[in-house]
């Protein structure tokens, strides 16, 4: 019941923001709000890992990049010449109607993989990588875990930066739109802006509902037990390593989905999306929201990402996030919304 009220409030505020922008004629805000919504998807996923399972991950931008880059590479690679050369695999895929033929700017034929197939492959790849990385990494604790996930993020960054198929330092551009349903396309078209805003927010709402159900279930209680004391949880019969692995994979999938759709929305992706600073930024936002606080992370994620995307921090963008990290961790390690000042203030007023 409590969840129902919160989710209704979330949907209400999403609609209210859209109406506000259309009444005040500030529809251009919707572009950044849409991007913010996709970033929030990563943040609520990371919140599950950090806040509820108590494991730090400094490599989540890597999963975002795996999703985004796989999808972008498959949908921008022109298969026309491979089909003409009689590549049997391409012929087989083409015969199943899994490829999309179109024309590029100059009228030349382009043949690319259907975004649905690309997205499914990207998610599949993310799940496999998250499993393979998660099994050994999640056995580690503390500094070792932080460094191992950081190292994973850097490896992904290096790979996308040095591989030709991923566009090296330029990244990939001219990614086609993603047709979710006939007439509902995820792309950066201005006329599609309101549609796209609702699609992105829809993803966030669905994500929040999934996570809330997870948190308030047997799994969620097990996770909180792990966060409190892992050995005790183990002794109580909780398979801690399996629960940690599952939450890690789920949050990786959240990041990959955000990567896929943000790439289609922006029409491109660059190596900076895989950078260390991005991963640290996600961690910072989860920390500010209060680690084990989904709503706090969501609120702070929307607020800070939106301000950052609007360029409000200027050239001090990274410095602001660094300063926020330090200040929050020094004075309010439970998050801004859990500050004892609020309680003291309330006591004084009442």
């Amino acid at each position: 019941m409590r969840n129902l009220i919160s989710i209704t409030t979330l949907i209400g505020s999403i609609v209210a923001v859209q109406l506000l922008t259309s009444f005040t004629g500030t529809g251009y805000y919707l572009t950044q709000l849409t991007m913010t919504a996709y970033y929030s998807l990563i943040i609520i996923g990371l919140c599950l890992v950090m806040g509820y399972a108590g494991q730090i991950s400094l490599g989540h931008a890597g999963f975002f990049a795996i999703g985004g880059y796989t999808s972008a590479a498959l949908t921008t690679y022109n298969l026309t010449s491979m089909l003409e050369n009689g590549n049997s695999l391409i012929k087989f895929i083409s015969g199943r109607g899994l490829l999309i033929a179109a024309q590029d700017l100059y009228g030349d034929p382009v043949l690319y993989v259907n975004p649905w197939i690309a997205a499914l492959l990207a998610i599949f790849l993310t799940v496999i990588i998250a499993f393979l990385i998660g099994i050994p990494v999640l056995k580690l604790k503390g500094h070792y875990l932080a460094m191992a996930t950081l190292g994973f993020g850097i490896i992904i960054f290096r790979i996308v930066l040095a591989t030709e198929i991923f566009g090296e330092a330029d990244g990939l551009s001219e990614v086609p739109g993603f047709t979710l349903l006939p007439g509902v396309i995820v792309n950066g078209d201005f006329n599609n802006r309101i549609f796209n805003y609702y699609i992105a927010c829809g993803f966030v709402v669905v994500g929040v509902i999934i996570l809330l159900n997870l948190i308030n279930s047997r799994v969620g209680r097990a996770l909180r037990a792990i966060h409190g004391a892992e050995d005790a949880a183990n002794a109580m019969g909780i398979n801690t390593s399996r629960y940690k692995l599952y939450t890690f994979v789920i949050s990786a999938v959240f990041a990959a989905i955000a990567g896929i759709f943000l790439t289609h929305y922006n029409g491109g992706i660059g190596p900076s999306e895989a950078g260390i600073m991005k991963s640290i930024r996600y961690v910072a936002i989860v920390a500010i929201g209060g680690m084990a606080n989904l709503w706090g992370a969501l609120t702070m994620g929307v607020l800070l990402n939106f301000m950052s995307l609007r360029g409000m921090f200027g050239s001090y963008d990274d410095a602001v996030f660094g300063a926020i990290l330090i200040i929050i961790m020094l004075f309010a390690p439970d998050g801004l919304l859990h500050l004892s000042i609020w309680r003291k203030l309330r006591k004084k007023i009442l």
Binding site: G54, I56, L58, K141, G142, H143, A146, M277, I280, V283, A284, A287, S315, Y316, D318, A319, F321, G322, A323, I324, L325, I326, M329, L330, P333
Partner: peptide, 24 residues
Amino acid sequence: SPSILRMIIITIGLSILIREVALH
């Protein structure tokens, strides 16, 4: 007696801050 997670995040924040100050 800060937790390890807290110390990791503080020192990461410090490294970002020092780097940005050096950049400016």
